[in-house]
Design a protein around this nucleic acid. Structure first.
Lengths: 328, 328
DNA sequence: CATTAGTCCATCTAGATTTCACGAACGAAA
DNA sequence: TTTCGTTCGTGAAATCTAGATGGACTAATG
């Protein structure tokens, strides 16, 4: 950033006052100093720079060409410092700043992306950087300061709402649907219209995420709530891979509605009735003194955008529709 | 320029080193300081600014969002200071700088203008400001620092070449021609071809400048060298006005060749033979420690351009020409 | 008209004050 | 226990003030 030979701004300020008032004495009075101090400051600056700054002009002094050149640059520097102060205030107001978001992939597609489009209008000064990151890693990145905001799914090891280190806001409840291959015996007309009880799939082979992945914990928890432990035959990292396995008849799976754009053809989607099959998506920022105003602004926008997406939450996707209401 | 609450660059430098090294101790080692000093500098900066800059992160520290924002501005400020240092060196080399020129009007037209066109190519960093200014005032403006370079005519009170306060360089000897109204008895074919002796005009009414003007002193000096004192009936400030009076038959005059574009029709121009009728145009810059390198560069260019204008110096304007050689 | 005393200005020196860095001790975290 | 950051007291360095010095302009005087 800066090397050793310092260009002291305080001294530059003194030089500017001499330039503006015309004499050392007047500058000293304006700076609440003695003429001696002003003289010493400027001669010190001239010594450091190795160039003469003042030259005698009759009774008073005159600035050399170097000094005037120096002051031009000083004015630019001064403006930049003013801008720094102003930006510091704007940061506190949440109007500018850099927000690094870590989010799961479906969260990026469904909430973070639309939020960025909106923020570009309402808060053009906020610079958003998105990084797709898996759930357990996201929290440590938030702790180490490499991320400012995390969008994740709730699961066993996720931070609690009461955790004082964070501000946690739930964004959306993402219903999970059962997906079966076309032609599967359970893919009946009645199930398609009214939903299916999860218990019926207790003896099916299952496709899930890797056991270390929070998504697999959700599947396990949902099935446990339905009274069985799924027979997981295949483990995938991404939803589209799992959907492809199901389409190939390798098993059944629970896939969240926000991942709907990723499902290939050859699948039957059945809403779950009875036990609540869903995953909770929430956002997390640091709280207390470590809170970042622009991150909080982004958080609020995420909440707004999520609230305008009812498609994932309540409606049964296969119920007769009276009209197309939502965009995606 | 700058107000009281100073944003100390030295402290910003310390903060930057903490950001780059990651810990206070490492930054202290890099800066050849103790961790204690680094800690105090940063907490002092944070206190002045009223914003937290560091927050605890496990055993070490982490920069707050404000601090990172501050460092972004600090980098810009640092670049600007580097540029200031570089510009200071460039000024010493004469590559950049502001040069305020004071010149007489014919000097502007014949030498300063063409020099500016050339300097725009060879030294685009030099910012030239021209001001037309009369001779006696020009020297005081040079002394008070309001001008950096003066182009003037030599006369009685002009600074000598030996004056240690200045560097004086003669640019061009501007021959002065006798101008008579068309039909004047002395405007003979022989005079037109071979020149006229000034003594023949001793009894004519004269048109000259104001007596306070150095140009009138030149006319007086030239006539005195020819052995007479001219009977000055009319006084003008500009050459074109004098030429108009001559054309109207109000008298005769000596008009320099560099003012040729200003002469109206209805005049006969006769070269002077015998006594040397000319005025010396020279350039002046401050010398010694007050010398301005860019002004010196401009001075050299003036000399070059003047040397390429032989039209004013030697040739008889009315002698049979073998070919057109010069531009204007 | 030249001279000289008076005034204003910047700078130098010496002494006082503030700022700054160091070292040791303490609390926190791994 | 070790590493790290901060706090407190001490010493050094930078900076300011006050008074003295010399140069330069002004005006009054011989």
């Amino acid at each position: 950033m800066l090397d050793e030979p310092f260009l002291d701004l305080k001294r530059l300020r003194v030089l500017d006052e001499v330039h503006r008032r015309g004499t050392v004495s007047a500058a000293a009075a304006a700076l609440h100093l003695t003429p001696s101090a002003v003289s010493q400051q400027i001669s010190g600056l001239a010594r450091d720079l190795g160039v003469p700054l003042l030259e005698k002009q009759g009774r008073g002094v005159r600035l050399t060409g170097q000094a005037q050149l120096l002051l031009e640059h000083g004015a630019i520097v001064s403006e930049q410092l003013d801008r720094a102060r102003a930006d510091l205030a704007a940061w506190t107001d949440g109007d500018i700043g850099k927000v690094r978001i870590g989010a799961l992939s479906t969260g990026i597609a469904s909430i973070v992306g639309p939020s960025m489009a909106r923020l570009r209008e309402t808060h053009p000064g906020i610079d958003i950087r998105v990084r797709e990151v898996e759930a357990p890693e996201a929290f440590t990145l938030l702790d180490t300061g490499e991320l400012d905001l995390v969008v994740s799914v709730d699961y066993r090891d996720a931070p609690l709402r009461s955790d004082p280190r964070y501000t946690r806001v739930d964004l959306i409840t993402d219903r999970m649907d059962v997906v079966l291959p076309v032609g599967h015996p359970l893919a009946t007309e009645a199930a398609w219209r009214d939903g299916i009880k999860l218990e019926l799939l207790a003896d099916e082979p299952w496709v899930s995420s890797a056991v270390t992945d929070p998504c697999s914990m959700i599947t396990a928890a949902v099935c446990a709530a339905a009274g069985f432990s799924p027979d997981i035959r295949h483990e995938c990292l991404e939803w589209d891979a799992a959907a492809a396995l199901v389409a190939a008849g390798a098993g059944v799976a629970l896939i969240p509605r926000l991942a709907r754009p990723l499902r290939p053809s050859g699948l039957v989607t059945l809403p779950v009735v009875g036990s609540p099959a869903s995953r909770l998506i929430f956002a997390l920022v640091r709280a207390g003194a470590h809170a970042s105003p622009p991150a909080t602004v982004v958080l609020h926008t995420l909440v707004q955008v999520a609230a305008e997406r009812p498609d994932a939450a309540d409606r049964y996707p296969n119920a007769p529709r009276t009209g197309e209401r939502q965009t995606a």
